[in-house]
Write a protein that binds this DNA or RNA. Structure first.
Length: 585
RNA sequence: GGACCUGUGGUGCAGCUCGGAGUGCACGCCGGCCUGUCAAGCCGGAGGUCGCGGGUUCAAAUCCCGUCAGGUCCGCCA
């Protein structure tokens, strides 16, 4: 707690019996008042530390949210009037002087009430919303998360370097925000979607270990976990392996978790992308709950049941799900189809006449006795459970079951425990573009897996990369990779991407130029601080850990952005509006 | 670009399925009373374009169409 200065000699929320007898001045907002005629009034004063009851002998001409300075003597409350629901409930201030520093109109919504206002109202009056305990706590958690990350980076020898916000357009990746140049009308800067290229140039520049708590801007659609502008811990280091990068980042996120929650988090786990897909049906597994995907390939290898004659047959076990009714099961089937499955087979695990478990299902008659037994064994199913089976190609089958797993079992993202996991060995390329060329899964400067480099020319889709994601409770916190630092490998990657030498030069010329002058092997990472903070603060949306966030349509309900610009300003920038998107404001 | 949910005094809700006078609840607000309250209490009062536009109907908060805003998600986010 900071030492009180200025108009105050004490903070409201920390006064206790030990302060009895002290003459103090507290400053804050009137949270509530309880008046008893002209002889007695109770005024609850709130600052960022909490609330203290002040007792005024006489009338108190105060209203909610008036800003006041109250001077008086701290005293124990009279017997029988202690409020044990209030941290300061054992004491009160006998007010001797009440100063109104600033009167206030009644706020549009209650700041300490039982029910919270809806988000549009909170966002319109964000400066009031920030006064609530929830937002005060969230901003302070965020500050401590940042501080813990900075301490960790500093202790690991990282150098904080700022990179430009006015950057140059890069043709790949997320849609960029464009900034018109006044001095060179018709030319543009862009706001960085990440400092990716800048930090690689810092490695060429011999910085060795760089980090930055960096703002990034992406002009893509918004979500609960995505804003136009967001903050990430961005880092890059030279002469390191991916395990080194993992150590750097793990230290920072675990320190932040300790700092924000006071609890000791489990070490960060590791898993390959293949394993994540097979066990959880997603590249961002939530390890807090089981319901893992079980492969039934062996169990039904020789089946006569057509639906199970597929390259991949997998199941999830829903403990106690046997009680689900027909309507619920039909809904589950429809959901699976909606997600792209050909169908869904459900099997209830019931007690068998001969003892043990047997399966009850519309399709049970198509399965041989030993197949049903093998399924029960493979899934470790118990009586009363429900098994849900999907068959088809490996990736879509896993994705459908992974999604069903989340919809049936996933707790809110912020619910402890905090299960961090590194997911590594992503494929280098995912799918093909319109021209039949592979598409980079991470970015084209990602180093291929050393065992797979020679597949670049023969089987590019089978090439694994040295990239990795950090996942927490099913949210992707960030991603990184060991980068290509050698011209020959870079040429082969570009070639695999269908990029000619000329195209590569035109798109990434200045980076490739830098690499000609001695680039150290390097790798790095970036993770979203908004997302990490939201989870640690117990929030399901990053808007609640951002002071002034935007709505899903990209509007700032308080400031009124975006808006049109005066004609004069547009002319100066050499901009003419062709199609007004709307009436403007 | 698409799917779904929401929109009713300042705030949070109910009313909508089955159309019948802006009906109701809680909080807040204004005034009065009240010397130990703490979600203070008691009495009284004010406050509404039922998001907006159109349609159906004798009659629309309620049914239909469109639209705007907010949210969740898909696409998108190398």
């Amino acid at each position: 707690m900071a030492r009180p200065r200025g108009l105050r000699t004490a903070y409201c929320g920390v006064l206790g019996p030990g302060d009895a007898g002290r003459r103090v001045s507290v400053c804050g907002w009137v949270a509530r008042r309880r008046e008893h005629g002209e002889h007695l009034a109770f005024v609850d004063v709130r600052d960022h530390t909490g609330i203290i009851q002040c007792v005024v002998d006489g009338a108190a001409d105060l209203r909610s949210e008036y800003v006041v300075r109250i001077t008086g003597t701290v005293r124990p409350r009279p017997e029988g009037t202690v409020n044990d629901r209030l941290a300061t409930g054992e004491v009160e201030i006998g007010a001797e002087e009440v100063e109104v520093l600033s009167p206030a109109e009644p706020p549009p919504f209650s700041l300490g009430g039982r029910s919270e206002a809806e988000e549009p109202v909170r966002l319109r009056y964000r400066y009031l919303d920030l006064r609530t305990g929830r937002m005060q706590a969230n901003l302070r958690i965020r500050s401590r998360v940042n501080a813990a990350i900075r301490r960790s980076m500093d202790a690991q020898g990282f150098v904080e370097v700022e990179t430009p916000l006015l950057w140059t357009p890069t043709p790949e990746g997320a849609r960029e925000f464009a900034i018109p140049s006044r001095l060179q009308p018709g030319s543009f800067y862009v706001l960085p979607q990440s400092p990716q290229i800048a930090k690689q140039l810092l490695m060429v520049g011999g910085v060795d270990r760089y980090y930055q708590i960096a703002r990034c801007m992406r002009d893509e659609d918004l979500r609960a976990d995505r804003q136009f502008e967001f903050t990430q811990l961005d880092l890059e280091a030279s002469f390191v392996s991916k395990e080194d990068v993992w150590d750097f980042v793990s230290d920072a996120v675990l320190a932040a978790t300790r700092e924000a929650t006071g609890a000791e988090p489990a070490p960060v786990e590791t898993m390959t992308w293949d394993e994540a897909l097979d066990r959880y049906g997603t590249d961002k597994p939530d390890l807090r709950f089981a319901m893992e995907l079980v492969d039934l390939g062996v169990a039904v290898a020789a089946t006569g049941f057509k639906a199970f004659q597929a390259p991949c047959v997998r199941a999830i076990r829903i403990a106690g799900g046997g009680a689900l009714g027909r309507a619920r099961l039909d809904a589950l089937t429809n959901r699976a189809k909606q997600l792209g499955a050909a169908g869904l087979v459900w099997l209830r695990v019931v007690a068998a006449e001969a003892g043990g478990a047997e399966l009850e299902s519309p399709v049970a008659k198509f399965l041989a006795d030993e197949e049903r037994r093998a399924i029960v064994t493979a899934t470790a199913a118990e009586i009363g459970d429900l098994l849900v089976v999907v068959a088809g190609e490996r990736a879509p089958t896993s994705h459908v079951l992974g999604q069903l797993r989340l919809e049936l079992g996933q707790p809110p993202v912020f619910e402890p425990p905090y299960r961090f996991v590194w997911v590594s060995d992503f494929p280098m390329f995912e799918g093909l573009d319109d021209e039949g060329s592979p598409v980079a899964a991470h970015h084209p400067f990602t180093m291929p897996h050393p065992e797979d480099i020679d597949l670049l020319e023969t089987d590019p889709l089978a090439v694994r990369s040295q990239s990795y994601d950090l996942v927490l409770n099913g949210w992707e916190l960030g991603s990184g990779s060991i980068r290509v630092h050698r011209a020959d490998i870079q040429r082969r990657v570009f070639s695999a991407l269908g990029l000619s030498k000329e195209d590569a030069e035109a798109r990434f010329g200045f980076l490739l130029g830098a690499f000609r002058y001695g680039a150290p092997p390097h790798g790095g990472f970036a993770f979203g601080i908004d997302r990490l903070t939201a989870i640690l603060a117990g929030e399901a949306s990053i808007r609640d850990v951002i002071a002034f966030p935007k709505t899903q349509s990209g509007a700032d309900l308080m400031a009124g952005s975006p808006r049109s610009l005066p004609e004069r300003q547009l002319a100066e920038l050499g901009i003419r509006i062709v199609k007004p998107a709307g009436p403007g404001r």
